[in-house]
């Protein structure tokens, strides 16, 4: 149990997706102008990562990993080079499914967050989460926790950045720094702050 809690904290803070691994930066910078949209994006990422990482784990373990077809008499078959295509397919399908379920049962929420869901089909952090899961050989419980933790880390970072940018809207910046430039520099400072989490001793 402590292992899983440690993994959650590590994936949310120490290995924060946008700030230390540089994943998902496109949406991180593009959709962080207002806190409202940032909250929507964050929630959508948590949901989609919490669903896709374990599903991809099951697929990888039972279909793609080397030796997965031993029971069928094909012990040498190694389909792991197909993992990229499979993961992308699963993510796109999961996004579509989450969209449809939300539209049916939670229409109010769908109207607020729906736009962000379709963006997530090609989101580096989500695909990166699945690829890291395959590289590091997590088991099912670990990959669920890893997916939720990474999603939480992303949500936290994007909400923080949007809050800071909101304040900066009134600042009198030099022209060249307006918008993207200052966003990079704030992200750098947040990343500097998050790098202190690397010193945290985890079980």
């Amino acid at each position: 149990m402590t292992d899983l809690a440690g993994l959650f904290i590590r994936s949310a803070f120490v290995e924060n997706m946008p700030l230390t691994l540089f994943l998902g930066l496109c949406t991180f910078l593009a959709l962080s102008r207002r806190p409202g949209t940032a909250v929507g994006l964050g929630v959508a990422v948590i949901v989609v990562m919490g669903v896709t990482v374990p599903v991809n784990h099951l697929l990888y373990q039972f279909v793609l990993a080397p030796g997965a077809w031993t029971w069928a008499g094909l012990p040498d078959l190694d389909l792991s080079y197909l993992r990229l295509l499979t993961f992308i397919g699963v993510i796109a399908a999961a996004v579509q499914l989450v969209e449809m379920v939300m539209d049916r049962y939670l229409p109010a929420l769908f109207n607020t967050f729906g736009v962000f869901l379709s963006l997530l089909a090609v989101h580096c952090a989500i695909l990166g989460g699945s690829l890291f899961m395959a590289d590091r050989r997590y088991d099912l419980a670990e990959s669920t926790v890893f997916g939720l933790g990474s999603g939480t880390g992303f949500a936290l970072a994007v909400i923080m950045l949007s809050a800071i940018r909101r304040r900066l809207a009134y600042a009198d910046l030099p022209g060249g720094l307006q918008g993207l430039g200052i966003a990079f520099i704030i992200t750098g400072m947040m990343s500097l702050g998050f790098s202190t989490f690397a010193q945290v001793a985890l079980p």
Partner: peptide, 30 residues
Amino acid sequence: LAPSAFFLLGGLVWAIRSWRREQIETPEYS
């Protein structure tokens, strides 16, 4: 470390936009 990449890219954006002023984003408030 990670932060330096952000600072460098921010600086690069600043440098390019100071040179090519038409790329400057219009601020939401002024």
